[in-house]
Structure formats: structure tokens, C-alpha cells
Amino acid sequence: MTLRIDNLTLARGGIPVLTGLSFDLGRGAALILRGPNGAGKTTLLRTLAGLQPALSGHITGGEDQIAFAGHADGLKAMLSVTENLNFWASVFGRDSIDAALEAYDLHALADRLAGTLSAGQKRRLGLARLLVTGRPIWVLDEPTVSLDTAAVQMFADAVHAHLGQGGSALIATHIDLGLQADVLDITPYRATATTRAGASDEAFL
């Protein structure tokens, strides 16, 4: 399944931040998203995940295919590592979490409450959640925050394995994951005063 973005315009707080963005993300491909703070990386990823509407343009091939991981991990402090993963596995209609525990070396922590984990361990658990969703397109916002070198390697391996199985990944990150991935710098697509058509407050000007 190819995720196809066509001439997308996105707004944050009523003001366009990105315009005319188009790209394809095919099976087995990874795309690294770059751009300065405030360029609209998070807005783009949240829009692809279906959390907010685009001002204009089309997104095809994304319905029920995307697993999203944002700044927050969506973990419950009072549930154990396995309970957290099992919950998301059953929400996505899957039953096995072993592979996810294995990939992020969480077996030793399996019965710990998520609230007692360190920030890096929580992040590993949050990323392990992607594996239990069984969805082919990963949309990840700064996934390596608070991960140490070993954990970054686990993540890179997991992405690599995911791509090998025909999945794809769109990752906003500033560090080099050592992946065979294209880099998309969204800076040229930043909305300027002249390209800011279609904003929700345009009617007022």
C-alpha cells in the first residue's frame, strides 16, 4: 500500500504552515522528515494520522494503515509493561506481544509498572506499541527522544525489520538512524505571506 500525499496544505491554529506538499511513501521505504522547529513536522504527522484535517490536498492509502507515535507515549503508569502492550494489542485486534517485548529488550521489565520505568524505558515501551498494532505505515514524531545509543540501535533494527516485511515509515528525527532512507526537508514548503491562501481566517482579510 502506497501512502500518497498530494498538494497538501496544513494549518496550525488557523494559520497555514505548509503548502503544496506532495510525496509518495511506498512499501519497504522510509522517509526521514527534516525541518527547523515550527516548520510543521508535528502538524504534518498528526494530519496523516487523522487527528486533524488538512486545509486542502489529498491523502490516499492511509486509512486504517497508519500507526502513530507522538510526543506522549500513551502509557498508563499504574499498568505493567505487559498490561500496557496487551491492551493496545487487543485494541488493534492482535494477540501476541512477544515480538515487541523481544525487539526492545523489555522481557526483564515485563511485570514492572510503567510508572516505575525510566524515561528511556518508557519510550522503548511506547515504540514497542507500534509492533503490536500490526499496521504497515509507521508515522513517528521524534521517536528517539530520551533513548540511549543501545536503544536507538534497537529502534533502528525494528524499523529495518519492519521495512523488510513490506512496511513503511515516516520519521521526523534529527539523528542519523543508519537506515537506507530518503530525506525530505520540508523547509521549501513552508507557507509564506504570499502562499498562505486557504487559511481559516483568510475570509477576514
Binding site: 487523522g50 500507526a67 502513530f68 507522538g70 506522549a72 507515549d73 500513551g74 502509557l75 506499541r129
Partner: peptide, 9 residues
Amino acid sequence: DGTLDLLVT
């Protein structure tokens, strides 16, 4: 904790 975002998706 971000669970709602994930539930919506």
C-alpha cells in the same frame, strides 16, 4: 498521557 490521540487513530 497521549492515550486519547492513540485511541482516535
